[in-house]
Design a binder for these strands. Structure first.
Lengths: 116, 116
DNA sequence: TATATTTACTACGACAGATGAAGTACGACA
DNA sequence: TGTCGTACTTCATCTGTCGTAGTAAATATA
């Protein structure tokens, strides 16, 4: 079920969100649904986590917001990735590869290794 | 240099420490040196992070401490992993594999993908 | 012998990101 | 009429990390 602890993902929520903005602007609800489906239900981002990430990233210049009415007339806040956001995303991808390598030195695969 | 951000490692410091206790008890200073060398200088855990992890994990029952004098007569606090600690470690290894899979859905390798 | 460095911690306060709880508001559907 | 889905916002709390600082003994260097 929801096996993934938040402390693990913590450093990557911004990256995940930016990934979903690479091709076109989007908004909170849509992004949360996409995270759910792309992760095959394995990661469900919390609403508060998502919206506070938007605020933070807009402050940092990684995304820009604008409001637009949906078909039904209801207003939505859309987010668009900036050039800064794109380069931050690229950095995080590189960092991920490094981090992965480092952590795997401390992980044992089968779960063997435990006595003597 | 120190490319790895703490938010990424955050969920894995405990796991890293437990890994280093799997085979034999150890103490703070030794563990920090081992993390440095095993990670090929890519990850240097902060002293405060390390010692607060000890406190937390002892409270959680993952490790036990005892003091022992080193050859020189200086006292050290050693930590020994418990059975609970071993099973927690195993869980975290499994969680890692899942997390890795999930995050990689949102990472683009070459850094391509950026315009339309 | 005097000093610097390494070893081996502890205490404290600050901060950032994640979260739970709660509330708002509109449209669709039954 | 009421519930569900969409689309958020506000607020207060928690946890882990980190900077700063201090202690103290052992070892290396001058």
């Amino acid at each position: 079920m929801g096996e993934i602890s938040s402390d693990v993902i913590r450093g990557y929520n911004d990256t995940i969100i930016l990934f979903l903005l690479l091709d076109s602007p989007s908004y909170g609800y849509e992004i949360s649904k996409k995270i759910k489906s792309i992760s095959e239900e394995k990661y469900l981002i919390k609403e508060t986590t998502l919206y506070s990430a938007f605020t933070r990233m807009e402050k940092n210049g990684y995304i820009e917001s604008y409001t637009q009415n949906s078909e039904s007339g209801k207003k939505r806040t859309y987010y668009r990735i900036t050039d800064q956001g794109r380069s931050y995303y690229r950095e995080k991808c590189e960092e991920w590869n490094l981090t992965k390598e480092v952590i795997e030195h401390f992980i044992t695969e089968g779960g063997e290794n435990g006595n003597s």
